[in-house]
């Protein structure tokens, strides 16, 4: 694998990016851009927070992976692994590969609900993990939540917790919580909790690419001399 494109060149840079853990102090909030400028503008640090749990309330199948995809792709580009801890279904390899995630960097951890939290904690605490995605249902007891948050801080990577059916109002130890729902060709995102002033208006995001989210009415892929379209791979007639 080639050198990560944005590996730190100076110590300051490294510290700013959170690549170095400065033992006694709390790590500064660092973030990884989500790939959606409108969203990044509202997220503390300008993206998904690192060294913390980012909590997404969603209904499965509403484009939650597609929303995370730009950030995950960046993680993958850096050669770092992405761990899926107890996802609801099979991560379908052809789709993930089409979406630009090298499968060699994708790890699927299967675990029972009890083990899942332990495994998630272990994974979050590992500094070498680029991104850790965990799934949890409506109930998550506070003690566990705190442990996860602590582990995420130890590890310093991108921690994402996807929750289905959790009430929006319950307090949590996680610094960021948003609710995602499909809307037209993209999403309606509500920031329920963030460091800093809350946001009352929902954000409307449109999908920048078709991976994970087919759009049959999308402009047609074609290499057409002067005109530029992006080409999706298509089954070649053998």
């Amino acid at each position: 694998m080639s050198r990560p494109p944005d590996s730190p060149h100076t110590l300051q840079q490294a510290i700013r990016q959170g690549a170095v853990w400065r033992g006694d102090r709390c790590p500064p909030i660092t973030a990884r851009p989500s790939g959606y400028p409108a969203l990044d503008a509202q997220l503390p640090g300008g993206g998904w927070g690192l060294g913390q749990i980012n909590e997404l309330l969603h209904r499965p199948g509403q484009g939650e992976l597609a929303l995370l995809l730009p950030a995950l792709r960046r993680v993958a580009e850096e050669g770092r692994p992405i761990l899926l801890v107890a996802p609801p279904w099979i991560p379908y390899a052809p789709a993930w590969a089409q979406a630009g995630i090298p499968l060699a960097q994708l790890v699927w951890i299967r675990a029972t609900a009890a083990d899942a939290l332990w495994a998630l904690e272990q994974a979050l605490a590992e500094p070498d993990c680029g991104a850790v995605l965990g799934w949890a249902g409506p109930r998550l007891d506070d003690r566990h939540a705190r442990r996860l948050q602590l582990a995420a801080r130890r590890g310093g990577g991108l921690g994402l917790l996807l929750r289905h059916g959790a009430p929006e109002s319950v307090a949590s130890p996680f610094p960021l919580r948003l609710a995602v729902a499909a809307q037209g060709d993209g999403w309606r995102v509500r920031l329920l909790k963030r460091r800093g002033p809350p946001l009352s208006e929902p954000l409307y995001l449109t999908q920048p690419d078709s991976s994970f989210r087919p759009r049959p009415e999308s402009p047609l892929p074609c290499h057409a001399g002067l005109l530029e379209f992006d080409a999706t791979p298509r089954r070649r007639a053998a």
Binding site: P221, C222, H223, G225, L227, R234, A237
Partner: peptide, 10 residues
């Protein structure tokens, strides 16, 4: 013409 999946107008 039997165009490929990503045909070129040229």
């Amino acid at each position: 013409w039997l165009p490929s999946d990503a045909p070129d107008a040229d």
